[in-house]
Simulated assay, not measured.
Amino acid sequence: MSANDDESQEQQDRARITQQFIDAIPHARALGMRVDELGPARAVISMPWAAHLVGDPRREVVHGGVVSALMDTCCGAAVIMHPAAPRSTATIDLRIDYMRSAAPRQRITARAECYHMTRSVAFLRAVAMDEDGDNPVATATGTFTAER
């Protein structure tokens, strides 16, 4: 088996573990989160619009806390997918800038990238988009533990 095959198998194993981790989180299941893509130090997770997630019933806009939970979960998945292979992670700090309301009745997708990793801290950037996809719903920067 070549080094590339070993790396590929390791990445597949981390992707499987990350998917199981997301599936085991009760709030991720309650929000209908779906892992769309996993790769080295990155993750894409989405969730559908649902009436019980609305924060503004008049406009049918999803609550900001739901967007926050999606971005936090996506960042955690990106940490686990880092080639340094941390066993677990937890949020230290997550700053979210809400740019606009998500469009009513549209799926929201978060993309996160772990752009730097020290021995024990991971640094991330993330963006959340709705199906319109032209402008972000929210952007985030964060730090997460990287337990090895």
Rank of each mutant, 00 (worst) to 15 (best):
E113A: 12
P104M: 03
S101A: 13
A78M: 09
I108Q: 08
S101E: 13
S101F: 03
D97I: 10
T89L: 11
D93V: 13
S101T: 10
C75D: 09
V54L: 12
G76Y: 04
R105E: 15
I92E: 03
G76I: 00
V54Y: 03
A102Q: 10
T89Q: 12
L70T: 05
R87C: 11
R111P: 06
A77S: 13
A84Y: 13
D56T: 00
P104Q: 05
R111Y: 09
I96M: 14
H82N: 09
R58Y: 15
H63Y: 15
I80G: 01
I108T: 04
L94V: 08
C114L: 06
T109S: 01
P86M: 11
S88V: 09
T118N: 09
I96G: 13
T118C: 01
T118H: 12
P104E: 14
H116D: 15
L70A: 05
E60Y: 07
R107T: 02
V79T: 13
V66A: 14
M117H: 15
E113I: 10
I108L: 00
G64F: 11
I80N: 12
H82C: 01
G55I: 10
V62Q: 07
V54G: 03
V67C: 11
H63M: 06
D72N: 04
V79K: 05
R87E: 14
R95W: 00
P57W: 06
I108C: 06
V61C: 12
S101N: 13
P83C: 00
S88N: 14
A90D: 04
R87G: 14
T91H: 05
V54M: 06
R87L: 13
V62T: 12
I108S: 07
A90I: 09
G76P: 05
T118F: 02
I96W: 07
I80E: 08
Q106G: 00
A112R: 03
R119P: 14
R95N: 15
D93W: 10
P104T: 09
R105T: 12
T118D: 06
G76C: 03
A112N: 04
I92D: 14
R107C: 03
R105F: 11
A85Y: 12
A102I: 10
R95C: 14
I80T: 08
E60L: 11
P104H: 10
A110P: 02
A112F: 05
A102H: 08
P104V: 05
P83T: 00
D93G: 11
P86A: 07
E60C: 11
A84T: 13
I108R: 01
R58E: 13
P86R: 03
